[in-house]
Design a protein around this nucleic acid. Sequence first.
DNA 1: GTAAGTACGTACAGAAAGGTAAGTATGAAA
DNA 2: TTTCATACTTACCTTTCTGTACGTACTTAC
Lengths: 150, 150
Amino acid sequence: MKKDSILPPKQPDTLSDKFQRGDLMAEACPSRTVLKHMTSRWGVLVLIALQGPTTRRFSELRRLIGGVSERMLAQTLQWLEADGLVNRVAFDVVPPHVEYSLTPLGQQAAEKVRDLADWIETSLPHIAQRWAKQPNQEGAQEPAVSADLR
Amino acid sequence: MKKDSILPPKQPDTLSDKFQRGDLMAEACPSRTVLKHMTSRWGVLVLIALQGPTTRRFSELRRLIGGVSERMLAQTLQWLEADGLVNRVAFDVVPPHVEYSLTPLGQQAAEKVRDLADWIETSLPHIAQRWAKQPNQEGAQEPAVSADLR
DNA sequence: GTAAGTACGTACAGAAAGGTAAGTATGAAA
DNA sequence: TTTCATACTTACCTTTCTGTACGTACTTAC
């Protein structure tokens, strides 16, 4: 007999919860923003590319990450910097020189994201194999023939 | 035109490698599609919500995941199903009844994504604290109530 | 003297993601 | 009888995302 127990409609008390620990299932939780930045199209790849002992320069990252535009790389780096995951050090020299690296927090984040990426890369054969059997999907959804499940 | 030498050569980057193992840094690699589905706005939350021993029904998921629309939930589930991460079982009954669950592959995926989510949720205080100091930024949000945790 | 590299900022536009509302078939509750 | 719930689909529209192109200020290479 728990109709509403799946999700309480509202709780004024969850507010304090939000500050102690995020709740991604809650619509208004700020953790969703962090998730958005980290799992944005380029966020994952930037974090991974920044792993390692050396700092990276902007155009170096651009070459590492296949397909990023300058605009998107800059924006992604700014997001991650604002979230405290990325360090940016700019040298005031004539041809601009900027070095990016991960903060301690960013290194933790990068590890998680790396684990995910590694899993995808190694599991890809299984998944791709499945795609081969089942016809198209992905970004484009054509008016596919509706599977008559009923 | 490949200049991959910036990265520490962990593995030879041959053509056959791409079929045996994805390479997310490569623009054309199909693993990017999987990443897109899993890290889509709702993909992460769906995978997490499906963790556990029980199956979930559509509207149950909808209630669990704050803010999803029916349209987006349906689409996300279809993506993940097509990738072989989610099982869908439809019963041919009068009020529709469909049960969703994770495939073995999906359970692995959910673990990775869960690790990431857990990290975000526990790290949120650090990050939010940083937002408060830095002038308001893109994507960053003001605290709904100015309750300052000291 | 001209092109290229650096690390972006900005304006514009097309693509994609996402939301809203409505419809479907049917049984059960009010 | 009207309404509600289920599990979607579809059309339509808005918001967000992302790419292209260009500008910058200056140095080095050709």
